[in-house]
C-alpha cells in the first residue's frame, strides 16, 4: 500500500499521499477519462464528421468539404420543415410554459391547506418516465375514446383529433410539455418565496393594487428565475425528441417533425452520420446564438436582490 505519512525529508519528485490535488486527480480520473472520451472527443469528432460522408460501420470518412451544409440549406426541404417546427415549438412552449408555470408557482406560494400535496402533484409529471407518460398521453388524446374528448363530449363539444391532425398535433405536444414543466414551477416557487414580504407590506401601506404589486414587485424580483427558465427552456425545447418520437414520429404530414427527430432519422435510419453531424452542429450554433441573444437583451433587465 502507499505510504500515508508525510516525510518532510523527502525532496524527491514524487506525489505524496498528503498531496491532495494528485490524489484528487487520481480519484476523479475515471470521470475525467469518461468526459474526455464521451463528451469532448465526440464533440470535436462530430465537427470533423460534419465535413465528411461517413457511416457508422466503415470508419473511413470521406472528406466532402461543405457539401453536407450546402445540401442542408439548398436541397433538403425536410431540414427547413424541421427547423421551422422546432422554432414554433420552442416559441409556443416558452410562452405557454412561462405563463402557466408562474401562475401555478404563485398559487403554490399561497399559504393554503394541503399545500405540500399540491406541490407534490405538480412535480409528479417530472418523475414519470417519458415513455410511460407519452403512451398515457396517446390514450388521453385519443380522438374517439380519449379522456379529454370524452369530457368534451359530456358538454356536447366534439373534440379535435389532437395528435391525428396536422392542425392540432403541434399544440398537443406543447400542452404535454407544459404539463411536464414541474421543474420550472419549482424554480419560480423558490423565487416567490425569496421576495421579501416587507415590500408587499410597504406597497399595501401605499395603497397599491394587486395588479400593481404583481407588475412592480413580483415580476421584477422574479426576473432572475424567469431569465434562467427562459434560457434552459429554449435549450430543452430545441432538443426535444423522445416524447415526440414516441407519440407522433414526426407526423402527421411532418407537422411535428422536430429538428432532433429529423436528426435521429438521418443518423440511425439512414446511417448518414456525416450529414447528421452537420445537422447537430447547426442546432448547436442556433442554440448558442439564441442564448447569446437572450443574454445580450435580457440579462441587463434582470433585477437581482441586493
Amino acid at each position: 500500500m502507499f505510504k500515508l505519512k508525510r516525510d518532510p525529508a523527502d525532496q524527491s519528485n514524487s506525489w505524496r499521499t498528503d498531496n491532495l490535488p494528485a490524489w484528487g486527480l487520481f480519484f476523479v480520473a475515471p470521470w475525467i477519462i469518461g468526459f474526455l472520451a464521451f463528451t469532448v472527443y465526440p464533440f470535436f469528432a462530430s465537427l470533423y464528421f460534419s465535413f465528411t460522408n461517413f457511416n457508422i460501420i466503415n470508419f473511413s470518412p470521406r472528406w466532402v468539404g461543405l457539401d453536407n451544409y450546402v445540401e442542408l440549406f439548398t436541397a433538403d426541404p425536410i431540414f427547413w420543415i424541421s427547423i421551422g417546427n422546432s422554432i414554433r415549438y420552442a416559441a409556443l412552449l416558452l410562452i405557454f410554459a412561462t405563463v402557466f408555470d408562474i401562475f401555478i408557482a404563485y398559487l403554490l406560494s399561497l399559504n393554503v391547506k394541503f399545500l405540500s400535496i399540491y406541490r407534490t402533484v405538480f412535480f409528479f409529471p417530472v418523475l414519470v418516465p417519458v415513455v410511460a407518460a407519452s403512451l398515457t398521453w396517446i390514450w388521453i388524446l385519443n380522438p374517439r375514446f380519449g379522456l379529454i374528448n370524452g369530457l368534451l363530449d359530456l358538454i356536447g363539444v366534439k373534440g379535435p383529433n389532437w395528435l391525428a391532425s396536422p392542425d392540432t398535433a403541434m399544440l398537443s405536444i406543447i400542452l404535454i410539455a407544459v404539463w411536464g414543466s414541474g421543474r420550472q414551477v419549482i424554480v419560480y416557487l423558490s423565487g416567490f418565496n425569496d421576495i421579501p414580504r416587507s415590500l408587499y407590506e410597504a406597497a399595501d401601506i401605499d395603497g397599491a393594487s394587486g395588479t400593481q404589486k404583481f407588475w412592480r414587485i413580483t415580476l421584477p424580483l422574479l426576473s432572475p428565475q424567469i431569465f434562467f427558465n427562459v434560457v434552459t427552456l429554449i435549450i430543452f425545447s430545441l432538443q426535444s425528441f423522445s416524447e415526440v418520437y414516441i407519440m407522433t414520429g414526426g407526423g402527421p404530414a411532418n407537422s411535428t417533425l422536430l429538428y432532433a427527430v429529423n436528426l435521429y432519422n438521418r443518423a440511425f435510419r439512414d446511417f448518414a452520420m456525416g450529414y447528421a453531424s452537420a445537422l447537430a452542429w447547426i442546432m448547436f450554433l442556433l442554440i448558442l446564438g439564441l442564448t447569446l441573444i437572450i443574454f445580450k437583451f435580457l440579462s441587463g433587465r434582470v433585477i437581482y436582490e441586493r
Binding site: 380522438p143 375514446f145 383529433n161 391525428a164 391532425s165 402527421p252
Partner: peptide, 10 residues
C-alpha cells in the same frame, strides 16, 4: 384525411 388518421390512431 384527419378522420382517417383519427380512425387509424383510435
Amino acid at each position: 384525411a384527419e378522420n382517417l388518421q383519427a380512425y387509424a390512431s383510435t
